[in-house]
Amino acid sequence: MTYIVNLNALAGGLFIIAAFGILATRQIRACLKLFILQSLLLAASALLLGLSPFSIHLMAVAAINLVTKVFFLPWLLRRLLNEEVYTRREISQAITIPSALLIALVLTIGAYFFSLSWVETASAASAIRINVPIGLAGLLIGALTLTTRREAVSQLLGLLAMENGAFFAGIAIAQGLPLIAELALAFDVLVLIFVAGVLTRAVHERTGSTAVGRLSSLREEPHE
C-alpha cells in the first residue's frame, strides 16, 4: 500500500502549493480556480485514505467536498455576483505579495516543527505525518490570505481555505467521526457559503463594490 501513501503525499504537496497560489493570485477568477483545485486535492486525499482500510466516512467527506466546494460554491457565486467581480485584479493588498509569500513560508516551516510533537506517536509511513503538518500550514496560510486580502470574495476563499486546512488534518486523525457529524458539517458549509454569498451581494449593492477592506467607519473615534 505504499503507492497510496505516496499518492497522498503528492496530493498534500499540491495542496500546500494551491494554498500559496490562493495567497499570491490577484485575479479573483484565478483565485477561485485555485481554491477549487485545493478542494479537489482535499477530496482526493480523503478518497486515498479511505481506500485502505475502506472507510465509508472518508468517502462521505470526499463526496461532501466535491458537492459543496467544487460545484455549489462556484455556481452560487456566479448567480449572486456579476462578471465584473471575477475579472477584477486586486491591486490594494495589506502587504505586498512577495512579503506575504515569505511569511507563508515561515508559517509552513513553523507548522511542521510545531506539529512534530503531535505526530510522534504515529508510525513513520502513516498518512498522519503528511496530513497534520500540511493541514496546519494550510490553516495558517488561509488565515494570512484572509488578513491580507481586501475583497469580499477572496476573503471568503481564505476562510474556506482555512477550513480546508483543518479538514486536511482531520481526515487523517479523525477517521471515526460519526456519519451524522459529517452530514451536519455538509449542511454547515452550505449555509456558510450561502450566507457569505448573500452578504457579499448586499455589500456590493450597498457600496457599489466588494472591497470590504475599505469598510472602516466603525471605530473608537468621536463622532462628528
Binding site: G142, L146, R206, T207, L215
Partner: peptide, 19 residues
C-alpha cells in the same frame, strides 16, 4: 453590513481554528 462582514469573517476564522 460592515459589522456583519467583520462578524462572519473573524468568528468563522475562529471556528476553523477551533475545528
Amino acid at each position: 453590513l460592515e459589522a456583519a462582514w467583520k462578524y462572519i469573517v473573524l468568528t468563522l476564522m475562529g471556528a476553523s481554528i477551533a475545528l
